[in-house]
Every structure is written in structure tokens, then in C-alpha cells.
Design a protein around this nucleic acid. Structure first.
Ligand SMILES: [Mn+2]
Ligand SMILES: [Mn+2]
Ligand SMILES: [Zn+2]
Ligand SMILES: [Zn+2]
Lengths: 135, 135
DNA sequence: CCTTATATTGTAACTGTTACAATTTTATAA
DNA sequence: TTATAAAATTGTAACAGTTACAATATAAGG
């Protein structure tokens, strides 16, 4: 059992079920930004009764609690990652892979938007990755 | 007839059909980042034979030709806008509205990513807008 | 006008997501 | 522990956005 996860749940006031812990553990240390389906397929062998709806439920809960981040891509599906170190993304137009980039500095110029409460900033780059370019 | 659009089509080597022109004109000067459905419903009265598939086709073509930009939101649908002045977006978590922000400066630190060809950079902020905060 | 290419249309299929009621598991307290 | 209530999980069906595709209509070129 993941002690760090149990404390996180205590903080967020949610119960640390085995299913939730499994989703968390899978995302922890995973840099692939998986889809719901990929998470489900990965966990199903270890949790044979797992339902895809449960994965959806957990991801929605984790997102609401800011434990994970939803990544909206131009594919018609969402991807997820742990909300750990702040970083930017580069998405390859050719192969679709999402690369993590070191955090970049963003300077705002928010004239006229000073009543806005900014909770999250996100930088997405798009283009062709090195692998695809070399082909 | 929109002369600017006809020249744009000449540049892109696509034919300036009335349907395409209508989609273009609707997006031009529209700051609401409409969905496919909104575009379709708006144009249908003026083009009674219009099919939603056609709207999809045109938006896909315009996106490929870099005439418009696809905006991927956390809603389960895409939004579109003309690819004119470069700007950032603020999306309100409460009401979902997308606000245009003046362009922000982004400083890259792309150590290890120097084979990458960056075609587009995008800055998305997220939080609560003034209107929703005041309620 | 004729011929060919392109654009548009309607329908059906596909896919990611959500709603919901039933069941199982977990938390709480007697 | 056992009883009770609350919460989590499950399976199914519905839903929504998107895409595939074949048929039709329109446009372009000679
Ligand atoms: Mn990432
Ligand atoms: Mn915009
Ligand atoms: Zn690539
Ligand atoms: Zn708002």
C-alpha cells in the first residue's frame, strides 16, 4: 500500500480504495499521458472486476481534487497525468506523441482582466518532433 | 462576395464555394469560438440544404490549410476561430466561456529538444472569470 | 455541350463519455 | 462483532461529437 497516497486521500477527504490507489500508482511515474482506455486495459488484469465507468469516476474525482490534470488533445479523447511538477507540452502533429518540456516562463499582460482568478496556466507547443522529421 | 476570402482560396489552391465562404464569413469577426453545431445552426437558415457533414469537412480543410485554429476544450467538443492575430485564452471553469487575452511572451528553455520544429505555440489559462466570481 | 473533378449531402456507423439503477464494499457506531 | 448507513463499484444503456461512405449535385475545363 502506498502511504503517500493514503495521506493524500486524508488531505482531500476521500477514501483510499484499492481501485483509486491502482489508478494513482499507474499514473505515478508514467510519462505517457495515457487515455482512459489505456489505463483501463493496464489495470484490468490485476483488478478483474474493474469497470471502465469506475476509471471514469476516479479520473473525474482526481481531476476535481487537483490530483491529476486533464490534457485536452485534438484527438477525440482526453489524456491524464499526475499534477506534479509544472511543465509544458509539445504535441507532434505527425505521430501524436506528447512530450514533456521544462517549464517555460510566461509573462502576462492582462490589461482589463484584473478580476480574473487564474488557477492554472498551460503552455502547449505543436509541430513536428525530431523522430518524425528525420523520416 | 468576400474578395479577401477569394484571394485566400487562390493562395491555398482551394475553390471558393459559397458554403466555404459562409463558414469563413461567420468566423470572421466572431469572438465566441463557436462549435460545429453553433456554426451549422447559424448558417442553416441562409443555406437550407446545408449538411452538418459539410461543416465538418470545411472546418477540417480550413484547419489543414491553417486558415482557422481548432481549440480543444474540456468539453467533449471542438471549437474554432480564425487564425488571425496571435493571442492567448482564458477559460472559465464555472461558465465555460473562453476569453481572448492579449498575446503573452513565452520564453522557451528547450534543452534537448533542438531537433523539434515548432509550428504553433498556445497559452491557455484556466480559472474563474470576473462575472462568475462576483456571484 | 460533354467530360471530369470536386463539393455537398444524408445516412449509418463509430467512439468517447455520461446517466443511472443495482450491487458490493467500506465506514461508523451500537 | 454486528447492524446500519454511506460511499464506491459495476454493467448496461443512452448520449453526443465525429467520421466513413456512397449517392447526388455542382463546378471547372475543354
Ligand atoms: Mn506531461
Ligand atoms: Mn480566441
Ligand atoms: Zn512525431
Ligand atoms: Zn465564468
Amino acid at each position: 500500500m502506498n502511504q503517500q497516497f493514503r495521506e493524500l486521500c486524508k488531505d482531500k477527504n476521500i477514501s483510499p480504495s484499492i481501485t483509486r490507489e491502482s489508478v494513482y500508482d499507474y499514473l505515478d511515474g508514467n510519462e505517457t499521458h495515457p487515455t482512459v482506455d489505456e489505463i483501463y486495459k493496464e489495470l484490468k488484469p490485476k483488478l478483474p472486476t474493474l469497470s471502465k465507468t469506475t476509471v471514469y469516476n476516479i479520473l473525474k474525482l482526481f481531476t476535481k481534487e487537483d490530483i491529476i490534470l486533464e490534457i485536452n488533445t485534438r484527438e477525440h479523447k482526453k489524456r491524464y497525468e499526475l499534477n506534479n511538477e509544472d511543465h509544458a507540452h509539445f504535441t507532434c502533429d505527425m505521430c501524436g506523441q506528447i512530450y514533456d518540456l521544462p517549464k517555460v516562463e510566461v509573462n502576462y499582460n492582462l490589461g482589463g482582466f484584473n478580476g480574473f482568478h487564474i488557477k492554472h496556466e498551460e503552455v502547449n507547443l505543436r509541430g513536428v518532433c525530431k523522430d518524425c522529421r528525420d523520416k
